[in-house]
Amino acid sequence: MKSWMTTSLCVSAVLAVWQGLIAIGLLSHTLVPSPLEVGQYLVGAVRDGTLWDAFSVTLRRLAVGYLAGAMIGVPLGFLNARFTLCHDSLGLLALGLQALPSICWSPLALLWFGQTEWAMFFIVVMGTVWSVALATEGAVRNLPPIYLRAARTMGSKKLHLWIHVIAPAALPFILGGMKQGWAFAWRSLMAAEIYITILSGFGLGHLLHYGRELHAMDQVFGVMLIIVTVGLAADKILFGPAERSLHRQWGTDR
């Protein structure tokens, strides 16, 4: 059976059971909306543009913050792997801050930047940068030494060795780190949007937050569904193809 058929069958089954449970009154309607109501909310929100606005605001924040975080994190990881001084200072900092749940940055972000886009940006970057840096450093440190030995005997050294051997050899593992960084960025942004209200743009997190305040269960469920879908789409559209092409080249695909 094709995998998309399995998926759609499975989703329909869940929806049917869900609707059925509500119909026979096993699920409290004040706490759980029916799938139809969630659908109606989503259609309405798409029609009046609120969903699209929130979606684009959130995605812009995510993309900008994540790209900045990755662009800082990858070089930072290389520095930490190359220089003991960096490893002992910045590396330790990365290890400590990576363990800090990113929502813990929001009080600081609010104090430093106020209720602005910069606060959001700061939180997403902090959520991304450390895990990307740690993954990159780990990737470089755990390279099979045989690549380096072979390259050195051919006369590759210093910058040439880093650009033409270490970076490409570490790339599959760096990509893994970027993927993890993406997950962290997404989590931190959602936490930040729920926690911090910003007048310059309502994101998906805000929609979720106001859904709770208004006790609009269809909105809460609908927005959560969108958030899940964004996470899935990132995996399927962004990282999936990149991973597959790397695996094909390296011969590590199953």
């Binding site: 072979a150 390259a151 005997t153 006369g155 033409h164 011969g251």
Partner: peptide, 27 residues
Amino acid sequence: PGPDRMVLFQEPALFPWLTVLGNVLFG
């Protein structure tokens, strides 16, 4: 180490991110 003394190791030690031609071109 330098390209005047090339080494053939027990493992081929080829670079999987390059094609066969890319590997030979590396040195």
